[in-house]
Write a protein that binds this DNA or RNA. Structure first.
Length: 501
RNA sequence: GGGCCGGUAGCUCAGUGGCAGAGCAUCUGACUUUUAAUCAGAGGGUCCAGGGUCCGAAUCCCUGCCGGCUCACCA
């Protein structure tokens, strides 16, 4: 909407009462400026420095005349001289306005501008009595009038719901929030850099899929009108990336959104960012090394160190990480050796003895997963690989030679969070078909997260896939870890919320 | 889905049965190096919504909505 339309709506009732609110007062100022021929939203302004660049230039011996631009975040108006701070993407800098320097324009600053407006200002830099580098303004111009005020200057914006729903206010008023998202961006950048320099090529695979697969999860459904076809939003990119390995792209990766139709929590958002990579002629041991090196590389790049704080602990990403089999880890933390309970019933009975609540009929694989979640995951603060998972949980992983019922799979945990999941990829098409059939049986038995039979994928494997290591890394969780944020909503700009009541 | 906590001015929050409050922000006035500027004054409310109890409800009760934490669910 243009301000002209606002005029039409409001002008007939332009009494003092009509403008007796914060937005109204600002609107009135805007209309007054328009009457004076001022464009409150001019198309451009040429600045010579950012706030940070200006400060640096001054400290390195003066910068002469500079032009700055930013949002007014505070004002101190005192008679014939005034100060304000403006904020741009690089930080804040103070502006100083004097009537004897600026003449009539000084009154305009006092009466036309508000906190939250964007302005551009030209002048020279100096240091105040207390040493703050400040721009003595010769001339300024309004760049964008704000009709609504900013959150309070001291406490900022703390209401969690408003922070998520109006993230821009959160970003304007909370410096640490800006830093978190800058760090997140740097993490993704460093991840790309690591993979690119290690021979991986970045690819993009379908988000709209006729069959969903690559993980155990319920999908979102959608519908394509022209094709008259039901489609699913992907829950993983795995099956498409492995088709590319079949096709001879020996090292591929994708960083993108997955969608899982599940509840929300401090560690789950329905759409989240996943990095998956696949490397031909590698196995899960190679992927472990890749995880160690990649995370160390990202930490060095983004944090400048391999040690960083997390929930009061100090995480140390220095390779190599601890390696322990899933069976040993669970035995160590719970005293339960699941190998001694080869059936679901026997294991469930043992877990009930350990005072765990067990839902009747839970498959053995899910029971083991529950032991992992309950006993091992919260303790895995320092980087840990758990390896060799039960085959029931991993329909896409290759069986470990000489170890019946076990697949070559690991999960990487840091800070008590699952960060990575990888395996030696199953490339035996006959075995893969059997696994899918088993999943179909699970689905028939009521498992609504069971894998679908993906005949097209099996055909791809029948054309031959080399031995391959595959890896998934949760980018949101990595961002949580590196920024010491304990809710996934604080590393996702616009987390999923209920519709507003 | 269960339990607990919360929703009051633009923002941050007090107020637990008796006139709707404070700080910041806003408006008016004073003030030429302030920086949570200061000083004097003023305006600003769907107390989340609906219902109930009561002479009287922001406050007590019920229902609903939204949010947070947590448990369950969930690679």
């Amino acid at each position: 909407m243009t301000h002209a339309e606002e005029v039409d709506q409001s002008a007939p009732a332009a009494t003092t009462e009509e403008y007796d609110d914060l937005r109204g007062q600002r609107l009135q100022k805007l209309l007054r400026l328009v009457e004076q021929g001022v464009d409150p939203y001019p198309p451009r302004f040429q600045r010579t420095h950012t706030a940070a660049e200006a400060r640096l230039a001054f400290e390195q011996g003066g910068a002469g005349e500079v032009s700055l631009a930013g949002r007014i975040v505070s004002m101190r108006i005192m008679g014939k001289a005034s100060f304000c701070h403006v904020q741009d993407g690089s930080g804040r800098i103070q502006l100083y306005f004097r009537q004897d320097v600026m003449g009539d324009r000084y009154q305009s600053f006092r009466s036309d501008l508000d906190i939250a407006d964007f302005i551009g200002a030209r002048g020279t830099l100096f240091q105040t009595r207390t040493g703050e580098v400040t721009l003595q303004v010769q001339e300024f111009v309004l760049l964008a009038k704000a009709l609504r005020p900013l959150p309070e200057k001291w406490h900022g914006l703390t209401d969690v719901e408003t922070r998520y729903r109006q993230r821009y206010l959160d970003l304007v008023s909370n410096e640490t929030v800006r830093q978190v998202f800058q760090t997140r961006s740097a993490i993704v950048g460093a991840m790309r850099c690591y993979l690119n320099t290690h021979g991986f090529i970045e690819v993009e695979t379908p988000i709209l899929q006729p069959l969903y697969g690559g993980a155990a999860a319920r999908p979102f459904e959608t519908y394509h009108n022209a094709l008259d076809r039901r489609l699913f939003l992907r829950i993983a990119s795995e099956l498409y990336l492995k088709r590319l390995i079949v096709g001879g792209l020996d090292r591929v990766y994708e960083i993108g959104k997955d969608f899982r139709n599940e509840g929300v929590s401090t560690t789950h958002n329905p759409e989240f960012t996943m990095m998956e990579c696949y490397q031909a002629y590698a196995d899960y041991n190679d992927m472990m090394v890749l995880v160690e090196e990649m995370l160390a590389s990202i930490a060095r790049e983004v944090l400048g160190t391999l040690q960083f704080p997390w929930k009061g602990h100090t995480i140390d990403l220095t390779p190599p990480w601890r390696r322990v089999t899933l069976r040993e880890a669970i035995l160590e933390e719970s005293g339960i050796d699941y190998d001694r309970y080869p059936t679901a019933d026997a294991l469930a009975k043992r877990m009930v003895e350990a005072r765990l609540t067990v839902v009747r009929g839970t498959p053995r694989g899910k029971l083991i997963d529950e032991l992992l979640d309950t006993y091992v995951e919260p303790k895995a603060i320092q980087p840990t690989f758990l390896l060799d998972y039960p085959v029931e949980l991993s329909p896409l992983a290759k069986k470990k030679p000489g170890a019946p019922g076990v697949v070559e799979r690991f999960e990487g945990f840091v800070g008590g969070i699952e960060i990575a999941n990888a395996f030696s990829e199953l490339n035996d098409p006959l075995d893969q078909r059997e696994r899918f059939l088993q999943q179909r049986a699970d689905a028939a038995a009521g498992d609504d997260e069971a894998h679908q039979m993906d005949e097209d994928f099996v055909v791809a494997l029948e054309h031959g896939m080399p031995p391959t290591g595959g890896l998934g890394v949760g980018v949101d969780r990595l961002a949580m870890l590196f920024t010491d944020q304990h809710s996934i909503r604080d590393v996702i700009l616009f987390p999923q919320l209920r519709s507003q009541g």
